[in-house]
Each structure stands twice: as structure tokens, then as C-alpha cells.
Amino acid sequence: MASYYTDILLVSLLMSSALTEETICAKYTFQDKLVDAVFELQHQVDILKRELKNVQNQLNNYQLSRDMATASMETQLTAEDKRIEEKLTTLTNGLPGRITSVMTGLSTPGGSIYTRWGRSTCNANRTQTVYSGYAAGSHYGNQGAAANYLCLTKEPLWRKFEDTKQSGAPVFGAEYEFDHRSRVTFFDREITDQDAPCAVCQSPRSQLLMIPGRNKCLDGWTLEYEGYLVAGDISHAAASEFICLDANPEALPNDSGNTDGKLFYFAEARCGGSLKCPPYVDGRELTCVVCTK
């Protein structure tokens, strides 16, 4: 650029034929100054160009860094959106089933009912006492009697009746017997011939299981109560059934004495036949446990 301006100045000076030598020398002196100024100006322009390039590089670097940060943020946001969408989809897909489950729980009473033999109340995990009653059943000496034990209510209600004893299915109270054993060893007190209470219990858990032969629930089950397996004596005329008597049985107040009726005897293992011994032991009293789930 400087050379271009210099040539223009020389042509202009040569075309002026009337110029004197002194004038020409003065013009050359001016030309030198002008050339120096042009070079200085070009130098300044070059400096400005370099500074502009540096600024442009800085802007480019900033833009690149911002783009990378934006891309990283967009990647994170995309991943988060995907996670939230997947979770929402899972919740949405499972919602009908959960609604059905809730509606079923509202429309169908849950829980289970069982009798706690030998106790007057129910005190297991969130289990309620429906009513407290008297253990009862057919007389042990009556042939053809009913086999099952009853938990009679303490608040009977009647329909039509005749207050005379007649042939049929008489119901007696139940007593503890446990003959030929030390009752103190098993119950820490003497309970022979004492009258037995019972309680009907409602558990919030729907599955109910009585396990003969053990006094602890299986994994995943909740203990309601544990005790001894009992039934009627094999020498008696009346049939009986096996039930689970609480390990710490109570006695009804105002005991009636030794009047028999429906009786409780220990159930024990008998080896020498098909019962496997071990694990069972000949003559040993069997335990039991009532569990819910």
C-alpha cells in the first residue's frame, strides 16, 4: 500500500515541469515524511489487525466453550427427561393394578378369625378380641358326641325354648386334665380340673395357619400365640379333635370343681410306627403355634 502512494506522488512531481530544483528538494523532503507517516499508519493497522484477530480467537474460544457447556447441559437434561419419563410410564402402567388392589381392600373385609384356647383375650400384633367366652363341647363319655371344641359367648341370646333336659346334643364346659404329669412343670402351677376360658380373635392378616409340632412361626409369618397340642383322651367314648392350647392357660373365676365335661389332654408323639423318630421323640408332649400372614 505504501508503494502505491509513493508512485502517485512521484508522477505528480515529474509532471510539474515548472518546478525549480529547490522546489523539487522540498517536495522530496515532504515525500519522505509522507512515506514515514504511511508506514507508521500501516504499522498501526497491522497492530489493530492482530488485536482484532486475538479478539476473534477469544470470541471463537468462548463460543466453543459455551457450545460444549450447552451440549453437556442438554445431554444431562435429556437423560433426566428420559429417567422421569420412564418413571412416569412405570407409575402409569402400575396405576390400574394399584387402584384395583385398593378398591378390593375397601370392598372386601381383610383379616382372619381364630380361637385362642385357654385365654380370655387376644394380645398379638394388632389382633383384636372379638369376644371372650367359655371353652365347651360334648361330654367325654357320650358315645356319638360332637368332636369339636366350642368357644361359647358369655352373653347368650335365645329364641324359643323349653327349660327341661332332653335327649340330643348336650354341651358342657371344658376342664384341664393332663393326668399322670406334673402340671407345675408345664404351667408353673396346678391347673387340674380348672375351667378353661377362650377368646375369639380377629387378625388384620388374612392367612391363618396352626402348625402342630413346633412353637415358632415360619419365616415371613406373624406369631399369634403358641402352646401345646391337646385333645380328648383315647380311652373316652366321645370323639375329639386336636387344638392348640395357649402355653400359659388361664382359669375361669368361680371354678366349678371337678365336674369334667369336655376335657383337655396333652398330645404326645408315639414312635415305633410310621411317625419318624427322630425328629420326634417317643412320649414327648407336642407343641403348636398359631401364625398369620
Results as ranks from 00 to 15, higher is better:
residue 178 F to T: 04
residue 234 I to E: 12
residue 246 D to K: 01
residue 30 F to P: 01
residue 170 P to F: 05
residue 30 F to V: 09
residue 61 N to I: 11
residue 241 E to K: 08
residue 83 R to T: 11
residue 196 A to Y: 01
residue 260 D to Y: 10
residue 141 G to F: 09
residue 24 I to F: 11
residue 241 E to S: 11
residue 106 L to K: 09
residue 17 S to M: 09
residue 143 Q to D: 14
residue 156 P to R: 04
residue 13 L to I: 12
residue 185 T to N: 12
residue 265 Y to P: 04
residue 206 S to M: 10
residue 143 Q to G: 15
residue 212 P to H: 12
residue 174 A to I: 03
residue 104 T to D: 13
residue 199 A to Y: 01
residue 92 T to L: 14
residue 217 C to I: 08
residue 45 V to Q: 02
residue 178 F to I: 08
residue 224 E to D: 09
residue 247 A to C: 05
residue 4 Y to D: 02
residue 236 H to S: 11
residue 251 A to Q: 12
residue 128 Q to A: 08
residue 162 E to A: 15
residue 108 T to W: 03
residue 91 L to Q: 08
residue 201 C to G: 02
residue 231 A to T: 10
residue 287 T to R: 07
residue 266 F to N: 05
residue 116 R to A: 03
residue 187 F to K: 03
residue 141 G to L: 15
residue 241 E to N: 13
residue 165 K to N: 15
residue 175 E to G: 03
residue 188 D to S: 09
residue 33 K to Q: 11
residue 30 F to A: 13
residue 17 S to N: 10
residue 164 T to K: 10
residue 38 V to Y: 01
residue 248 N to A: 10
residue 46 D to F: 00
residue 125 N to K: 11
residue 241 E to H: 05
residue 218 L to G: 12
residue 273 G to E: 05
residue 3 S to C: 07
residue 37 A to R: 00
residue 160 K to C: 08
residue 214 R to C: 09
residue 15 M to L: 15
residue 38 V to D: 01
residue 33 K to E: 09
residue 26 A to K: 11
residue 38 V to K: 00
residue 83 R to C: 09
residue 7 D to P: 02
residue 244 C to T: 02
residue 162 E to G: 11
residue 230 V to C: 06
residue 44 Q to S: 01
residue 85 E to M: 13
residue 215 N to T: 05
residue 35 V to N: 00
residue 250 E to V: 06
residue 157 L to F: 03
residue 273 G to L: 14
residue 285 E to M: 12
residue 55 V to R: 08
